[in-house]
Amino acid sequence: MAKKVAGEVKLQLVAGQATPNPPVGPSLAPYMINIPEFIKSFNGRTQDQQGLVVTTIVTCYADRSFTFDVKSPPTAILLKDAAKLAKGSGEPNRNKVASVTTAQVEEIARTKLPDLNTTSLDSAVRMVAGTARSMGITVDQ
């Protein structure tokens, strides 16, 4: 089909728990796509990750049909998981709340690499380390 893209919407949502409430409703409403169909499909496709935050990119076409992709969980979520941490620091400048190893940072960078706008593992590692620092997580050398 002559699929012509009208726009893309990037969302972070809790897997398996999307509803028409914000942000889904107001962000997709301008494209007039079938929102209940998106919710049903998204919740179905992410039910194995129930409760985890995931990134999804919804591609809306000119005839108001759509498709969506589910990407890897956000770096912050993977870091909290690696550090066995419930919550990031509210004051990352003063309050360091956990630590991760460089090996863990590299593993997260590898997971995230397909979804980042870089192909270099080094720059992906730097991004992950930056996010760790911004959450009050130190990286052990």
Binding site: M1, A2, Y61, D63, R64, S65, F66, T67
Partner: peptide, 14 residues
Amino acid sequence: DPGMAFGTGQHATT
């Protein structure tokens, strides 16, 4: 019903 496949009838090409 419109959904996840192109060809809802709303596009000039269809």
